[in-house]
Amino acid sequence: MDIAENAALVVVDVQQGFEDLGFWGRRNHPGADENIAALIDVWQASGRPVVFVRHDSVVPGSPLRPGQPGNGFKEYVEQRRGRGGGSAELLVTKSVNSAFHGTPDLGVRLRDAGISQVVLVGIQTNMCVETTARVGGNLGYDVVVVFDATYTFDVEGPFGWRRSADEAAQASAVTLHGGGFARVVRSQDVLAGTR
């Protein structure tokens, strides 16, 4: 695994509101949070930049709305914020699916810092992680999605079609990787390439 010395780890929406399984339903990848924490630790120890992305939902009733406890980062993420040094850390807030459409402008910040590779982790695999990967790929970034450091939930679509969290995540991974938007890898490969 070839991870650039200045690759940015983009931690997408690892927020307390996603713990509300009564709202979201069944999730997959029970070890994802441990993998996310390990990747943040390695990034910070190596001096690579970490971008923390927070979804400020505008949907009524969403546990991710500003002012709700669920809007905050999960405790293990909050404990790690600030450990990477001021210039090696960025907070991006958004109300849409792509971290590239938030505040401040992630693309501008990455270009100004000379960063061309982004490594994505977080929630949800087939929603904000996938959309960020697609936009990043379209913008010309070398995008790496760490599959087992993401998770999602069971989903229902049109015509009564339903997919389990595993099926939705796998479809996302196949589309991203097969479509050339991103390389989809496992955390052990990324950790081995950054130590």
Rank of each mutant, 00 (worst) to 15 (best):
A8M: 07
R163Y: 11
L21Y: 07
A192V: 06
T93H: 12
A113W: 01
N126T: 12
L110Y: 00
D189C: 08
V145W: 01
P66I: 05
D41R: 07
Y76C: 06
G193N: 05
S98C: 01
L21A: 11
F147C: 06
F153Q: 03
V184Y: 05
L139V: 13
V53A: 00
V145D: 04
A8V: 08
V144W: 00
G82P: 08
D142G: 08
Y141W: 13
V155I: 15
G84L: 04
A149K: 01
G61Q: 06
A173M: 05
G67M: 03
L191Q: 09
V77A: 01
D154Q: 10
E89F: 02
G179F: 07
T175K: 14
K94N: 04
S172I: 03
R48F: 07
H101I: 12
R162K: 15
W43K: 04
Q68S: 14
T152I: 08
L64R: 00
V119Y: 00
D148G: 02
P104W: 08
Y151K: 13
D142V: 11
H177T: 07
Q44T: 12
R83V: 09
F18R: 00
F100N: 02
Q44A: 07
V51S: 01
W161A: 15
A38K: 08
N97Y: 10
V145F: 04
L21E: 10
W161K: 15
E167A: 12
S172A: 12
I36C: 00
D56V: 03
G179E: 11
R48H: 11
T194F: 04
T132G: 01
G114H: 11
P60D: 14
A32K: 02
T125D: 05
V50Q: 00
T132H: 02
V155Q: 11
D105N: 15
L90Q: 08
R81P: 03
S57P: 03
V77Y: 01
G157Y: 15
S62C: 09
Q15C: 06
H101P: 06
Q117G: 12
D148W: 04
